[in-house]
């Protein structure tokens, strides 16, 4: 491959670099704008400031807390609901199992705004539910559950869990002993990757949350949209900067965890 380092390579590199620039430049601009005193005049002329970040924290700190809380709650729910399902799907490949998998994945295939509207129509008038943050949580769990199931299921299939379980049974392990000593430890990389995915997606979910939220339950992405619409560019940028500081480490960790979990298939 190193032999034909000719025009084709140069063209490919230039094209790829251009695409990368398209993706990265706005992020850099956003970060800079968030710490620039006056974006119109430029960072050099007006200087660097944390004033906008402080303003954002005054205005929107509650959205950050709520989003983190919902993300962690969604993680807990998807662990409790999703890991057992992945296990059941790893063990059974019958028609019923495929049907259950199909039903489970549907919330991802249907736009968030449609799901959000359906949730409001069905449950919006039930007591205090509509104004409680758990209303948003329900939507986030619907949307993230398939990712937890898929990630966990993929690793369970890659380590050939059913045979490992047969081995454990032959050595005398009953259901709970197996689940604790064989199933969970061997599925752990997939559960970790799925967990990071759930938290990342929940933190950023907007399509559904815009409909589901109320003035009392504004999440971070909804707050972002609010700031883009009604605040000056520097505040929107500073807010975005805070969001990226939360999100990017999660993305890096997610990449690492996925490589680790799904690299398994290559190693075997």
């Amino acid at each position: 491959m190193t032999r034909h380092r000719g025009a084709v390579f140069a063209a490919g590199l230039a094209f790829t670099a251009l695409v990368a620039a398209f993706l990265v430049i706005p992020v850099i601009l956003s970060v800079l704008a968030g710490i620039t005193a006056n974006y119109q005049r430029g960072i050099i002329a007006s200087g660097v400031t944390l004033l906008w970040v402080e303003r954002v924290l005054q205005l929107y700190a509650h959205t950050i807390g709520l989003s983190l809380g919902i993300a962690l709650a969604a993680l807990l729910c998807t662990l409790v609901l999703g890991v057992p399902v992945a296990y059941a799907l790893a063990r059974h490949s019958g028609r019923l199992a495929r049907l259950a998998e199909e039903a489970l994945v549907m919330p991802v295939a249907i736009p968030g705004i449609a799901t959000g509207l359906a949730l409001i129509l069905a449950w919006g008038a039930v007591g205090e539910f509509r104004t409680h943050w758990s209303f948003i949580l329900v939507g986030h769990v619907l949307f993230t559950l398939p990712f937890m199931v898929r990630s966990t299921l993929a690793v369970m299939l890659a380590v050939n869990l059913p045979t490992l379980e047969e081995a454990a049974r032959s050595l005398g392990a009953g259901f709970f002993a197996r689940f604790r000593t064989v199933v969970l430890p061997n599925a752990a990389p997939g559960i970790l990757a799925g967990s990071l995915m759930v938290v990342t997606l929940s933190l950023g979910e907007f399509n559904m949350t815009l409909l589901l939220h109320t003035p009392f339950t504004m999440t971070l992405p909804v707050g972002l949209a609010d700031s883009y619409a009604s605040m000056r560019l520097e505040i929107g940028s500073a807010y975005t900067l805070i969001f990226l500081i939360l999100l990017v480490p999660l993305l890096v960790a997610l990449q690492w965890a996925s490589d680790r979990a799904f690299g398994l298939e290559v190693r075997r």
Partner: peptide
């Protein structure tokens, strides 16, 4: 009786060693 209560020893075609345990952990599992 299911396999876990028959006290059989089984060697699988793929060996089915537990990747989360080391060699001693595997041998001592039962």
């Amino acid at each position: 009786l299911p396999i876990e209560r028959r006290n059989v020893g089984m060697v699988f075609q793929s060996y089915a060693l537990f990747p989360n345990l080391d060699v001693a952990g595997n041998v001592g599992y039962g």
